[in-house]
Write a protein that binds this DNA or RNA. Structure first.
Length: 545
DNA sequence: AAAAAAG
């Protein structure tokens, strides 16, 4: 045990995002994994070597020592352009090796000279503190043979300390926007000498309302700078920002987390609100659950669920934005190091956080925004490994589920959890405990909804014994691309799962679902899969919820 | 309606 704890420094590295998107594979011989890469039919190109990228010896040595030989696609494509001083527009998400695609060439560029007091030479903007830390770790790993220093400028931690570090001069400043602006306005730093800017996770910055801050920060920098801009998606709004911040950028897109087709097995369980925790516990007790992130929509619910899980003997931690920063970091480290098996969290960890070999993601609540579903489940099934993404819904979450399915273009197969009563979708509005909607009289939509047959009369759909044991895997490439802007070229699983999505499923199937018109989510017509978990003693004993 | 980030 102590050995494991002592290894936490290196365990942190293990769990860290790596140049090759095989986070846990640092233990494996990298070559073996790379053969898998090479075998992937879609990538028939010979693989480049890190040593071909022209990185300085100290950097190359650090890479070698970490056991990496081949850059990921984004690294192979971006690094040469960054080194030649071009602006880069990278469409990629964490898990593609994105972080090292800018940290490595930055180290190279910065290695020539030293920083001056209060004038950081480069600036990396991250949307959350955890991501900032992740990038900082990357610099530690790859910069170990260089004399460069970096500083983390984030909220929730002592400003005096950060000021002091800045005064000593930093080469790489990694910051969240709020604290950076704060310090800047207090005169704690000058950005006039900052010639290298990285805007990471731009789409998330947008979602979080950081764009005005980013614009402000960019305006503090010299126009004579190199800018690297990364986003998981390229929505029009993001494109506009890129045009604003970048000059003649080299655009690089990697659509998949790695060249290996990863799969995420998704599932949806519909239960009464009061049964959610019990259902979750059952699912968590499945032997396949190595480690899991459990997402809640609210911080309060994170706290409640976390305490409940601990009370039931689970090895769990909680993570959300209201917890002290020191706790946030240490909890995440413990989870990455395997000291905690379950991490209950808010959407603070929904994006970007890279945890190697995460076997399961659970949505204790369906997210309010369908895109968040995609981001959340993208924490698993990374780097060519299979992942599991199971969601709990109450009967009132029908529209949330429908939004997710329409976004991903894939039905979420329904799951049954043994010993838990499965529910149909409700026709009713969610009962609101007190304030909220002002009455339900906003029915200006007209009488379009016919009183269709009740869902609960629908038989539990006789299973055509199709994939009774193995649910259809969802190709991660499909799931990971949140906003399929153009028509998807192909959908491999369509032939595997012949679902009547559009053509009036109800009559065809004998099943009937209200409220969807002709556009019944196909999963509703699919057989359910049984999620079998050995009942535990406590569960049998009956318990406080 | 919620979370994140400044305090």
């Amino acid at each position: 045990m102590s050995a494991k704890t002592n290894a936490s420094a290196s365990a942190a590295e293990d769990a860290e995002s790596h140049p090759v998107a095989i986070a846990p594979a640092i233990m494996d011989p990298p070559v073996a994994d790379l053969h898998t890469f090479a075998d992937a039919p879609s990538d028939a190109v010979p693989e480049p070597l890190f040593s071909d990228l022209g990185l300085a010896e100290p950097i190359q040595r650090a890479i070698d020592e970490m056991g990496y030989r081949h850059p990921t696609p984004i690294q192979a494509q971006a690094i040469p352009y960054v080194l030649m001083g071009r602006d880069v527009l990278g469409v990629a998400q964490t898990g593609t090796g994105k972080t090292a695609s800018f940290t490595l060439p930055m180290l190279e560029i910065l290695s020539g000279s030293r920083a001056r007091a209060r004038m950081p030479r480069s600036l990396i903007l991250e949307p959350t503190r955890e991501l900032a830390l992740q990038v900082a770790e990357n610099f530690v790993n790859y910069g170990k043979y260089l004399k460069l220093n970096h500083a983390l400028l984030i909220g929730g931690e002592s400003m005096a300390e950060q000021k002091e570090v800045l005064n000593r001069g930093v080469d790489v400043l990694i910051a969240t926007p709020g604290r950076l602006i704060d310090l800047f306005e207090r005169g704690g730093l000058l950005l006039t000498q900052t010639r290298l800017l990285v805007i990471d996770e731009a789409d998330r910055m947008l979602d979080m309302g950081f764009i005005p801050d980013i614009e402000k920060i960019v305006s503090m920098l010299s126009p004579l700078r190199q800018t690297l801009f990364f986003s998981a998606t390229m929505a029009p709004e993001i494109r506009r920002l890129a045009d604003m911040f970048l000059q003649n950028p080299k655009e690089i897109t990697v659509s998949r987390p790695s060249s290996v087709a990863t799969t995420i097995e998704a599932g949806l369980v519909i239960v009464e609100e009061a049964e959610k925790r019990r259902a979750l516990r059952r699912m968590l007790r499945d032997d396949a659950v190595q480690n899991a992130i459990v997402f809640c929509n609210r911080k309060r619910d994170v706290d409640v669920l976390y305490k409940s899980l601990v009370k039931h003997g689970f090895s769990a931690g909680a993570l959300h934005g209201d917890l002290p920063q020191s706790v946030r970091f240490s909890t995440l480290e413990k989870f990455k190091a395997g000291e905690l098996k379950i991490l209950v969290c808010s959407d603070v960890a929904a994006r970007g956080i890279d945890i190697g070999g995460l076997s399961h993601v659970f949505n204790f609540d369906l997210p309010f925004h369908a895109e968040d579903y995609v981001h959340r489940i993208g924490r698993t099934g990374r780097a060519g490994r299979s992942g599991h993404a199971y969601s709990l819904a109450t009967p009132f979450d029908r529209t949330l589920a429908a939004a997710i399915e329409s976004l991903t273009g894939h039905p979420i197969p329904r799951l049954d959890v043994e010993g838990i009563a499965q529910m149909p979708w409700s026709e009713e509005e969610r009962p609101r405990g007190g304030r909220g909607k002002k009455g339900k009289g906003n029915d200006h939509r007209g009488p379009a909804k016919p009183p269709a047959p009740r869902h609960k009369d629908t038989p539990p759909v006789a299973a055509p014994a199709a994939q009774a044991s193995e649910p259809a895997p969802v190709a991660a490439a499909q799931v990971e691309a949140p906003l399929p802007r153009k028509a998807e070229p192909r959908r491999p699983q369509e032939q595997e799962r012949p679902v009547r999505h559009r053509d009036r499923g109800p009559e065809d199937n004998g099943a009937s679902v209200t409220g969807f018109g002709d556009d019944i989510p196909a999963f509703m017509l699919l057989p359910r899969r049984m999620f079998v978990v050995a009942p535990s003693a406590e569960d049998e004993a009956g318990e406080p919820s």
